[in-house]
Amino acid sequence: MKDNILEVNGLTKIFGENSVLRGIDFSISKGEIVSVIGSSGSGKSTFLRCINLLANPDGGKIMFHGKNIQDADFDLSKYRSKVTMVFQSFNLFKNLNVLDNCKIPQEVVLGTKPEEAEKIAMEYLSKVGMDAYINARPKQISGGQQQRVAIARALCMNPEVLLFDEPTSALDPETIGDVLDVIQKLAKSGMTMIIVTHEMAFARDVSDRIVFMHDGIIWEEGTPDQIFNHPERPETRDFLSRFTKNRYED
């Protein structure tokens, strides 16, 4: 039996009249890399946001190492530093330079000493190839560079799981590769990751498991080979064929 870091049972989320998540059952074990695919509006972002509790689930349970993250005495702050998120729009802190973006959260959330925090920040910034830019402000560097800093910022928290919500969707084609390379490197180093993406070739390469979301539930899941080469359900086939034809159609 595998040791699950995260376990999601019957997760539901309703926005007004709109049932966006309709009972998600999901789990991920240490070192596993899961890519979530599905058409626009199928609830992929909402699913990630519920895991990080940026959105409050309306039903179901999310367990982290067997503890319910919605319990009153659960240390949410620590959890969020352990299961942290990288956004489509990077969201680097605009008032801080690259180094402080990686340094301040460690000091504030983890209580790391400034010198130690700086050492850790430099370590991860060089891992993503951004250590030359520590003095730059977010608006002074390109989207791809910002996203790499955002990944370094997340890594500085020493996370157990990284959540990626379409990390390359807001990027110019030339810089997408740099960011995907960084994620690939993380995959090799054994980081546990849930990646929402429209980069099918990348998902196939990097993932241990593909989750296809449709209409607020996990419609089909399996190995990349199963999902991309032998999808069982018509909706999955439909999505993939539409996608390979023209990714902007859906």
Binding site: S81, M85, F87, F90, N91, F93, K94, P105
Partner: peptide
């Protein structure tokens, strides 16, 4: 809004987010 979300997602509470970011 992304500034608030990024701060929350990384574990900062409301007070920390307000004062630092």
């Amino acid at each position: 809004k992304g500034q608030f979300e990024a701060a929350s997602a990384i574990g900062m509470n409301h007070t920390q987010t307000m004062t630092k970011i």
